[in-house]
Amino acid sequence: MLVAMTAMLISVAELSNVISVVAILGCFVGMVLFIMRNMTIFWLHGEDFMFGSPVHNVQAQIPQMKMMKVHIPFTFKLQDPSQSSYQEIRCMVSSQEDYRLLAFWGVSIRELHMFLWRPWSIISSAINFGVPLVGHYQQRGHIIKDVSHKDKVITMSLPKGPHQPLELGTPPRLCYPLVVFLVREPNGTLHPDETVALINVIHIKDSVCTLPTSILAQYLKQANGQLSCLKQLYLATGNPVGYDSGLEFIEGVDQLCVVCQYYPLSRALLPCRHTCICASCFNKLDTCPMCRSPIKSYFCIRNEEYLSECDRPGAAPSKPEPIAQWLQDRLTDFLGFHR
């Protein structure tokens, strides 16, 4: 009996030693796995933990706007707007087609927009008969017919004579100080998408409204009746680029993405209209890097052939070798990550 109890105690002692060794090994393995897991996380996201990350992957896909290129034969710019007044306002005009310039002073805002939304046939007839906006402007200005030409300076002013001064009222005003039409002369059959008129709305600084003299808006009228408001794009340098400058700036070697400073910028963000990033960095952003406003959509201002096939948006990501992929999947499963 005593011998049996002694043997049992020896067995229990040996078993406890084995359990202790197994427990120590288990703790060691757990510690190694814990260190490996955290090292993997740090390897993947260590830079974000240490320094923070200004960019992150966007979950929802931002839609691309389909843009149609429209040829605009006219350009209209103000010359020395700081020196402009109702007695003299100078503008720079160029045209690739024979055209007609019509200026109207003190134009009703409501009636102007109603007139612009009418079909082009009605607008064209009113211009040809000399009765556009009849009864809805205070004074009629210059009427010029000219052939195509490059930049030419035209000086406009209020008509002299026994005219009453403009009555524009106090802000918010119901009348535009000056509206200038550039209308393409009819010459053969027009394609529905061709530009037939450029309408320029101009504010002139006065004692009541002291905002600087500037072009408030520019509207593009097409032969199919489509009316578009032309808006400027804003470069990373802060300089606006209007329709008259075209998109030639994108060919410059100095126009690089503000994020990577490597690829040329190729996308204009909406609604802020900042043109500041490339296609590669676009997929890592959901806010504009210039003004931090949310990106609702975008359009491309140039081709993106500078990106390789694997880097282009929408392209299938390159896959590693089968063995490497298998090892990566096993390690991911072992460490408890989701694939």
Rank of each mutant, 00 (worst) to 15 (best):
L166V: 09
V22M: 09
L198N: 01
I215S: 13
E251N: 15
L216E: 15
P212D: 12
A103Q: 08
G246A: 09
D146F: 02
I144H: 07
T189E: 10
Y298E: 05
P162F: 02
L265C: 13
E251F: 11
V183Y: 00
P317A: 02
P81V: 00
F115Y: 08
M39I: 04
L335M: 08
G52R: 01
N239H: 15
I35E: 10
L256P: 10
Q83G: 07
F34G: 13
I123F: 04
I144C: 05
F28K: 12
E251D: 15
D98C: 05
D151C: 04
S94C: 02
P162A: 04
F34S: 11
Y86Q: 13
H56L: 02
F104W: 12
I122L: 14
T6G: 13
G336E: 03
H338E: 09
L211A: 15
A324N: 02
D286A: 04
V21G: 07
C260L: 02
F28L: 13
S308H: 01
D286F: 04
K69R: 10
F42H: 05
H163W: 11
R110L: 12
I144L: 10
V183L: 01
A324L: 04
V55L: 06
F337P: 11
C91F: 03
K66V: 14
Q79C: 02
A223W: 12
P54H: 01
S11K: 10
H113D: 14
V201W: 01
V93G: 03
W43N: 09
R100C: 05
C278G: 03
N283L: 10
I24W: 11
P313S: 01
C175A: 11
M65E: 14
L211P: 09
F51A: 08
C91Q: 07
Q139F: 12
K296R: 07
V21Y: 07
H142Y: 12
L220V: 00
I204T: 11
G106L: 12
P132L: 08
L158D: 06
G242A: 05
E194L: 02
L270S: 10
F42E: 09
V147H: 13
A236N: 15
I295P: 04
S280F: 06
H142I: 11
M65L: 15
V147L: 09
L116D: 07
G169Y: 00
I250C: 08
G46E: 01
R273H: 12
E88W: 00
P132E: 10
P320A: 04
S280M: 04
K66F: 13
S121R: 14
K69F: 00
V18I: 07
S94F: 00
T287I: 00
N57M: 07
W43H: 06
P165C: 10
